[in-house]
Design a binder for these strands. Structure first.
Lengths: 189, 189, 189, 189
DNA sequence: TATGAATGAGCCTTCATTCAT
DNA sequence: GATGAATGAAGGCTCATTCAT
């Protein structure tokens, strides 16, 4: 419904512009242009608000990721890897700032179980994508490799999204991610 | 002074055991066994408290890292890399839970500029350590490689510290980090 | 109308099961299975709701009381008194819990003038019932005696309805009420 | 402490003048002339406030009652009973309006166990006072009689404290209570 | 008439911070 | 320096009531 959308949008906006600490239900309601009563008609408490925003973002991200990574399924490994990295980056580009806040600022009490949930799903997806290329891989354990890759790619993908103090070129980083991954998987780039 | 130490310890303890949201100055003072007035004698506000804890933790981490990584300076690359990874892991083992909270939960208003500061220093340290091994490296840009390495190692180093839902062995992860790094740097492991 | 009945029933039910503090119009409407709008179609405000429940309960109580006490009119005093006490107890057994809540928990703002109203009526009824037995009575003032009796019987009648912490038998209490009354009125039991 | 006293006084005053529903912590603090923060320094929540007022009132009442009823211990029954009734009335005159509110308006959630507690104590006190007069009593069971008396006297004692709609004289009521009690206990007045 | 989304005043409570002692 | 009572702005949330459909 329009009201719910407005509330979620307002929440996300405040989260991005002022951070999690500055998020309060009255402010969300005001920015959403609805009364505080309406907010509580749809969300039982502040945590649910953040949870819903996280859910919406996670859903969008997963959808984007799955859609784009599907294209990699039929490519040779050397093109599949950059394609996947692109997918991950595209997913992160949906709302990088919101992603950042959700990832790094949400206090413990609002963090839900499904954070790791999503990662596990991702690792299994990746493992399935790598399976067909078994013969070219030099990694010993595909499950282990998937864990390593998901974590490192996630970390690296954030790099080009922010200004580097030493002036490293974002474009170069983006390409280098594929290099790292391919060298790890195949020993060559 | 003892009072300051007690206050910082209390802060860190609450941060770890109950999270950033549960940190309040009265509780810190109580746990530290000093009056709230004394707390404000040494710290102008709540932010300074968190800042000081962060600073102390960063200092300890850096010190540990520098001390341990010094040993890697005179080793061949193949042993230097595991040695460095060990150093990073040791640094993270100082207080992994505090590290986690500081890294992931502290709201924007308390996050200071010097987070990146520390990383830049790290990248330069790493670059200096790699320099002597130039001939064995296949990476094109040492500054870029340092950025990549610092980010990915930091991400990977957290993995063995928490229980994996898919049951991957922490020991295996620890070794695999060196593999990833060496393959990236030299094309072999 | 069915809607009104449903609303009153819902109100009474919530009053009994969760107390006056837990009574709110939205909850009443929900439990009654009608919309909040419909509730306000029939009751101008929350107070009217409680008032109506009180009225209904008072009406039922009065009706029961008058019906049953009519039987006492043609009995000799010694049998009339237990008969009347029985009538009062029967009236209280209609919905003892609701009675309790209405009597002890309803805040001032919802208490209406007619509380005493009912009592006055009762006193006059009792006085009329006693009049024919004047010759056996040793009380000086029948109006005063009626006041005393209504108040004390009301108080005593609640006793057998709740569990006594010292384990006094409810049946014994019930009989003792008649003893008290008869001794007061006639000097004998 | 002065602050605590002021808070309790303010609570009692609001309770009496505007009822339980109108009691809110901000108003209490304002009337007490302290900040809302100070109120919460001494009382963990609204319920504790009401509980403390109730406690204070119960303590005062009990003290008055025990002190005054001690005088009845060495009197013959015929003077002891009016003396006791006087004691009960004096106890009720401490703050009749507060007593009323505490007795009839406090919602379930704030009612504590010790309501009945006090009554049991009273019944045992009364039983001890009656024991020495056993030979003049015609009641079969002293424990039962004590229960009856406590309840009926409590009910009757409230009568002279309020204006009667039928114009019964309060003084007469007061005396009649002793009559009722003595007739019940001894068969004569 | 019935509906129920929307409203918003107001209540309970927390906590960073001050300041008189 | 140390203390801790006191402050009060601010935030989470409830619920009686309205009104457009």
């Amino acid at each position: 419904m329009a009201t719910v959308q407005a509330i979620l949008d307002a929440t996300a906006h405040i989260l991005v512009s002022d951070g999690c600490e500055a998020l309060n239900t009255n402010r969300v309601a005001e920015r959403a242009g609805v009364s505080i009563g309406s907010l509580y008609q749809y969300f039982p408490n502040k945590g649910a608000l953040i949870g819903a925003v996280r859910q919406r973002h996670a859903d969008q991200t997963r959808e984007e990721l799955i859609t784009l990574s599907a294209q990699a399924a039929h490519l040779p490994l050397k093109q599949a890897v950059p394609c996947l990295i692109d997918a991950v980056m595209a997913a992160h580009r949906i709302d990088p700032q919101l992603h950042q806040v959700l990832e790094r600022e949400v206090p413990r009490q609002f963090q839900s179980w499904d954070v790791t949930e999503g990662e596990v799903e991702l690792r299994q997806l990746l493992q399935a994508l790598l399976q067909p290329h078994q013969d070219q891989l030099i990694v010993s354990d595909l499950a282990l490799a998937s864990l390593m890759l998901v974590r490192m790619v996630d970390a690296l993908v954030h790099v080009p999204l922010i200004q580097d103090p030493l002036g490293i070129d974002p474009k170069a980083v983006e390409q280098e991610i594929s290099t790292v991954v391919l060298r790890y998987l195949t020993g060559q780039a």
